[in-house]
Nucleic acid binder design. Structure first.
Lengths: 202, 202
DNA sequence: GTCTATAGGAAGATAGAC
DNA sequence: GTCTATCTTCCTATAGAC
């Protein structure tokens, strides 16, 4: 068919892969299904990517960045000067994103376990979580500065703690589907976070 | 070969499935691999189980109960009358189990995502997390009674909160492998839990 | 009930015509 | 570079001999 640069092919295949994975799950995202979704013949796949593992690595990174951008947009959109409202608002915004894009979040969990089982992709799972945690740390630092408070514990520890609750909660909500109860956990979590905050001495 | 009751076959196949999944991952646990691991010909599989999905359901339930029993054994083995030590000890014991049996915990995450993608197994993931949370609630109630304190928040909420942190932390530790930093999160979590505790009024 | 053999399909990857 | 056709392997499930 029409010519297309290799980089363009790769982008289109990655986008198609994410669509298939979101809709049907990572296990069903075969090279055939992905090429089909992208409107390309199967043969194309292996001159755009050396192997399926190579695509998986790019997909994992891409989807992490996409989610991050979407979540940032909603998390930072609130306007309040009350610390509790701000923290609750941020956590709730994240949770709303999980609810509204549950399949996309499920994909991230699938990609993590898939990567952890493949020696060729082990580092991909590590980079995925390194990225999440790094970005979460930046966000927390920004919030602290914005509100003029500091944490009583090192930011990396607080950040990891907050991320762990929300990641765990998202996963068990995916399995249970009980929004009301999950929201109560978010409120409780917000309260524990404010217990780790103080006004700076100076 | 030798005769064996259907129930016995099923048990042996489930045990073999868990071994294969732990060693090689859920995706590689094919009916062939499982029957082979159990020392049975492939044909046996389908008169012990109606389908692979039926085996998956039983495996998910079995592995949850096994993990629970193992974790209880180590979690409750500590002897201390200091609430902080008790809580830290319990959380650490759980984390040690994750570190010592990381493949087994990875299997539980794989089983959850697998079930969530299969309409036939959707309820299996729900039951899996219902079970985890129910058992965690019992444990927390027992600890509260043992130490003679009560929680300032409803036990189901506290339980869900604690479970979420630990489940999320276990997953991101699996990806990152940084024990030291994970332990700091555990300490912080223990402190937040003690902030939710009070001596009863009477 | 037990097991071999195989059906019937789908996977990742590639050879080779254009 | 593009795409069809195919190689090889592996899957779940079953038919049918013993």
């Amino acid at each position: 068919m029409t010519r297309m640069s290799a980089a363009d092919r790769r982008e289109k295949l990655v986008a198609a892969a994410i669509r298939v994975m979101t809709r049907d799950g990572v296990a069903k995202a075969t090279t055939r299904a992905i090429a089909g979704e992208a409107g390309m013949p199967l043969g194309v796949f292996h001159y755009a990517f050396r192997s399926k593992a190579e695509l998986m690595a790019v997909v994992t990174q891409t989807i992490a960045q996409q989610s991050k951008a979407e979540i940032d947009a909603v998390t930072l959109s609130g306007t309040t000067d009350d610390p509790f409202d701000l923290v609750v608002g941020g956590l709730c915004a994240y949770f709303e994103h999980v609810v509204a894009h549950s399949d996309e979040h499920l994909v991230t969990y699938e990609l993590t376990t898939t990567a952890l089982r493949d020696t060729e992709l082990e580092q991909v799972a590590k980079r995925q979580y390194d990225y999440y945690l790094e970005e979460n740390e930046k966000l927390l630092s920004a919030v602290a500065e914005l509100m003029g408070f500091e944490f009583t514990e090192p930011i990396p520890v607080v950040s990891r703690y907050v991320f762990s609750v929300m990641d765990g909660l998202a996963l068990n909500w995916l399995a249970r589907g009980d929004e009301e109860e999950a929201r109560k956990v978010i409120e409780l979590t917000a309260r524990t976070i404010l217990g780790l905050v103080r006004r700076p001495a100076a």
